[in-house]
Simulated scan of single mutants.
Amino acid sequence: MTAYDVGVLILRLVLGLTMAAHGYNKFFGPGGLKGTAGWFDSMGMKPGSFHARVAATTEMAAGLGLAVGLLTPIPAAGFVALMLVAAWTVHKPNGFFIVKEGWEYNLVLAGSAVGIATLGAGKISLDHLLFANTGLDDYLHGWWGLLIAAVVGLAGGIGQLAIFYRPPAKTAG
C-alpha cells in the first residue's frame, strides 16, 4: 500500500459517500420520494416518480460503488450521467458558480469521478481484491477507465435528457 492508494481511497470515499447521501436524501429526506417526484415533475423530468426512483437509486449505487471501488468506471459513468442531467435541468440557467446555484459542483463531482476511473481505484478497493491480474483489471483504469466513464456517462445523461426532458413552459409576466 502506498500514499497513492490512500489518496485515491480518500477521494473515492468522499465522492462516493457524498453521492450516496444525496440518493438517501431523495428516498428518506424531507418529502421523501413523493416530494422528489414532484420536484422532478416541476422541472420537466416526467414522469417524476420514475425519475425520482432512478436518480435516488443511481446516486446510491454509483456512490457506494465508487466508495468501495467496485468496477470503478461504471459508477463513475453514473456520476457523469447524474451530474449532466442535474446541471442541464436545474443549474444551467444560473451560470457556472455554485454560490449562485450554478453547475460548478456538478462539474467537480463528474470530473473527479472520471479522474478516479482513469487513475484506477487503487489497492484498497474491491477492484484490486477481485480483479488484480485477471485481465479484467486492464479495463478498470487508464484509457479504458476514462473511456468507459466518460462515454457511457455522457450517453446515459444525453439519452435521458433527449427521451424524458420537457422543460416547463415559461409563463408571460
Rank of each mutant, 00 (worst) to 15 (best):
I148Y: 03
G142N: 08
D41P: 03
V114R: 02
K123L: 00
I10K: 06
D137Q: 09
S49L: 13
A20F: 10
I163G: 08
P47V: 02
A3E: 14
F96D: 10
F97Q: 11
L129G: 01
G135A: 10
W144F: 14
M83P: 07
T57Y: 13
A21Y: 12
A87Q: 03
G38L: 08
G32A: 05
E104W: 05
I158E: 00
A155W: 04
G69S: 09
P168M: 10
K92Y: 13
A172F: 09
L70A: 12
L11S: 12
K123F: 00
A162W: 12
A121F: 05
F96N: 10
V90G: 01
I148F: 09
N106F: 08
P168K: 14
L11F: 09
S112M: 11
M1Y: 15
I10R: 03
M83G: 06
G173E: 14
A81Y: 00
G63T: 12
G65F: 05
A55K: 04
V152T: 11
P75L: 03
L66N: 03
L140Y: 08
T171E: 15
Y165Q: 06
H91I: 02
T72G: 04
D137W: 07
T89A: 14
L146D: 11
K34C: 01
T118Y: 05
W39K: 14
I10F: 13
W144P: 12
A52T: 04
L82C: 08
N133S: 09
T2S: 15
V99D: 14
M45P: 07
L119W: 06
L107A: 15
L9R: 04
W143A: 15
S49V: 12
I116M: 03
W143P: 14
F79W: 06
K170D: 10
A67G: 07
D127M: 04
N25W: 14
L147M: 14
A155R: 01
A117H: 00
G23D: 08
Y165N: 09
G29N: 11
G38D: 09
L126C: 04
L33T: 06
T2L: 13
T72I: 13
V8S: 10
F79T: 02
L84W: 02
T58Y: 10
L13E: 05
L66I: 14
S125A: 00
G31S: 04
L147V: 14
G120S: 01
